[in-house]
Write a protein that binds this DNA or RNA. Structure first.
Length: 497
RNA sequence: GGGCCUCUAGCUCAGUUGGUUAGAGCAACGGACUUUUAAUCCGUGGGUCGAGGGUUCGAUCCCCUCGGGGCCUACCA
């Protein structure tokens, strides 16, 4: 990337349009202020529009208003100039500057000093033009903030890379970009309300951790100068939220960033927003109900329906009671052979080989999950809880209360994506230690994602954790499910090199 | 990690089978215009063709290296 041209000392090197705008900025400062600290604004553009929903053509209301907006279009003629002003929230209104209202000097200055993209303050009467456009017939104008760089062309779609690298411009220029930011905020607010209604407390747990745990993933590493020690950006908040439950915070949730040092694609980002929730004396069934409620409430609060329309026009039906299927039963049905926790690993391997699956760190449960993804996952369009996972790939989940060889864990799939996961949490400190030891053997065998043993967490469990249900949900992925956008569109400022 | 593609003006894109001075629309500059709304009309300027190296009389184009981006694939509870 080239350095910013505005940093060049020699003005000759500046792109023409920037040099010209810098001169205009100087002139504005000489005449007054190109960036005034305050302006006598009386209305937002939205308020003006709302106050006059249906005016006839060529009407003068007699009402005076003063607004600011960014200049999005300009149509300058000899004695009458038009500009379209846009509020940050996207509403637009037309400003009209006529010779007989502002005088020759102010009209000339306006034409010379105001460019597309500038923040412009205008005061005047609310009218409609001869074409019926709601307008402000300007008596006073003032530069609210001079722009130095030209806005991108509004008549072509911006390239994807340009949009991500200049999200601030994307937000100015593209309604949908603003909408997505708003939807995200509303979804967050809705989920917090659902939690509040269920007497959950929101907490924040460490991002910097001395031992990363709670998930299987490669971490980002950093270093603390003060403690002279290696630290990890968290891959999950799970082990700290469970400590909170041990401490008696019986209903607790956190919405915050996780960091995973792994691949980035349409559904994965190195940093992503994660929701985790724990409920003492709940189990994975309770958490499934909570998860369904969170998502359905969000859809209803934001879109007013459980049938949300996605970017490509298809409808994502989130309504009704969501299906629950068993992992082993659905796999057996799809594969055409009975597969249970007792199925010999050699048989699973034979089936995987036949299907052309390569499995990295072969354990029984790994085979089952890979085969399940191969045979079943793609067909799960409507929201579906996949229940009861293999034990050896789920070290933090308690054994099923009645089925041998599986744990009380579900994954929620929506439109073929893993959306959330829920557990009846493992709270027995002795079994938890055994599970960690198993993970350490895997790590020793070279699995870089295997979990580390967290002695302090085990100590907390040894002080007694109540039976607890837990759930985790990728917030960015929820936004994807609600909008049909890629993850880099649901995150306002995704990581770019 | 592997494969394929891509990078040209502020933005969106053409183009050059290697040849004088690299084009368009919008944006900008000068001029005309009191009802435009992608205003219109006349005129003008604007480029290290991602960076570096090579081949060549001559490279934006061909080759190599590097960098950015995309798609597929692998990996990612």
């Amino acid at each position: 990337m080239s350095e910013s041209p505005i940093e060049h000392e020699d003005e000759q090197d500046l792109p023409e349009q920037i040099a010209i705008r810098l001169e205009k900025r100087e002139r504005l400062n000489a005449l007054g202020d190109a960036y005034p600290v305050s302006l006598p604004i009386t209305h937002t553009i939205a308020q003006v529009r709302a106050a006059y929903p249906e005016l006839e053509i060529d009407v003068a209301t007699g009402d005076e208003v003063a607004v600011v907006g960014r200049v999005m279009f300009q149509r300058n003629t000899g004695k009458l100039c038009f500009a379209t002003l846009q509020a940050g929230s996207g509403e637009r209104i037309q400003a009209m500057l006529s010779l007989d209202k502002v005088g020759e000097e102010q009209l000339e200055l306006y034409k010379e000093l105001v460019d597309l993209g500038d923040h412009l303050f205008v005061a005047g009467e609310v009218i409609t033009s001869k074409r019926g456009e709601l307008s402000i017939l300007v008596t006073d104008w003032k530069m609210a903030a001079k722009t130095i760089r030209p806005l991108p062309n509004l008549h072509n779609e911006l390239g994807e890379e340009f949009r991500v690298r200049h999200r601030y411009l994307d937000l100015i220029v593209r309604d949908r970009a603003r909408e997505v930011v708003k939807i995200r905020a509303q979804v967050m607010a809705s989920m917090r309300k659902t939690f509040a209604d269920a007497a959950y407390l929101e907490v924040e747990t460490p991002m910097l951790q001395t031992i990363h745990g709670g998930a299987s993933a490669r971490p980002f590493k950093t270093h603390s100068n003060a403690f002279d020690t290696e630290l990890f950006l968290r891959i999950a908040p799970e082990l700290f939220l469970k400590r909170a439950v041990v401490g008696g915070i019986d209903r607790v949730f956190e919405i915050n960033r996780n960091f995973r040092n792994e691949g980035a694609d349409r559904t994965h980002s190195p940093e992503f927003a994660m929701l985790e929730a724990y409920e003492a004396f709940g189990d994975y069934n309770v958490m499934a109900e909570l998860t369904q409620r969170l998502i359905q409430n969000a859809a209803m609060d934001v879109f007013g329906t459980h049938q949300v329309v996605l970017e490509d026009g298809t409808v994502n039906d989130l309504g009704g009671e969501w299906a629950r299927i068993s992992m082993f039963e659905s796999l057996s049905a799809a594969a055409g052979v009975e597969i249970t926790p007792e199925t010999p690993i050699a048989e699973l391997k034979k089936l995987a080989d036949k299907e052309g699956l390569e499995i990295d760190h072969p354990q029984h449960g790994k085979y089952v999950e890979e085969l399940w993804e191969h045979f079943v996952k793609g067909d799960l369009i409507n929201p579906t809880f996949v229940m009861d996972f293999p034990v050896d790939t789920s070290p933090l989940v308690r054994n099923h209360r009645s089925k041998a060889g599986v744990v009380e864990k579900w994954d929620l799939y929506i439109r073929g994506y893993e959306q959330a996961t829920g557990y009846s949490e493992l709270v027995d400190p002795v079994i938890q230690r055994e599970r960690f030891v198993e993970q350490m053997k895997l790590a020793a065998a070279g699995d870089p994602e295997a979990m580390k043993l967290d002695e302090d967490f085990l100590k907390a469990l040894e002080f007694g954790m109540p039976p607890t249900g837990g759930m985790g949900m990728g917030v960015d992925r929820l936004l994807m499910s609600l909008t049909g956008l890629g993850i880099r569109e649901t995150i306002m400022f995704p990581l770019v090199k």
